[in-house]
Design a binder for these strands. Structure first.
Lengths: 104, 104
DNA sequence: ACAATTGTTTCGAAACATTGCAACTATTGT
DNA sequence: ACAATAGTTGCAATGTTTCGAAACAATTGT
């Protein structure tokens, strides 16, 4: 059980950064190489490479060398649906609580 | 968009610790007060309180004072289904890759 | 062989997270 | 008013993450 909690924590840790979520969002559309993706999201390539390797270590994305490029692609797009679910759950709840507060 | 990535990151950051996932797992069964839950998972109450307040700040759990106790409960059990989905996705994928490697 | 391009790794600085202890607050029952 | 119990907060020590710059490695085309 302990082991399973740790595995899940690794996955969530990988998702626990706005830039990594943004990058996953881009990877949902299509594959990107490091340089191109770094440009797109406005960070330098060394940082981009590090974020990508974290996502890869968590098993969320895969890479493939193509000549001098390395293409990254999303392993399971459901990961991002998950993110969407989390967001809407929280927002719904926040709204509900505000309504409740306003009603009194 | 930037703002939305940050909100999601807060949610995932809250989930990014084995002990917090364990606590959420317990909260799936029923409500717990801090002391009791701390005992159950084997940590001291100040640490438990801090983990719980992180989960609350992320909107994942709610609290309610009952006399001298504070009861915490899960806001949206779907959060943990989400965790389960993440886990199985990754494990499936890992397995697939191992099979692929073995087949060559 | 060489230059150009792409990615990764290493380093140090700054920011952040985690832990346990002690101090503190708040509520209950005597 | 007092003691007991439950929870939170502040603090200090320790460890982890993040970032950019620079160095490095690997591949391609000339």
């Amino acid at each position: 059980m302990q082991r399973r909690y740790e595995l899940k924590a690794v996955i969530f840790k990988a998702l626990a950064h706005p830039m990594r979520i943004c990058m996953l969002d881009k990877l949902k559309e299509r594959s990107w190489c490091v340089c191109e993706l770094a440009m797109e999201v406005g960070i330098n390539k060394s940082v981009a490479s590090k974020h990508l390797s974290q996502l890869k270590a968590a098993g969320l994305i895969e890479d493939e060398k193509r000549g001098t490029l390395v293409e990254y692609r999303l392993v399971a797009p459901c990961i991002l649906d998950m993110a969407a679910c989390a967001e809407s759950t929280i927002l719904d709840n926040r709204r509900k609580r505000l309504d409740f507060a306003a009603a009194r």
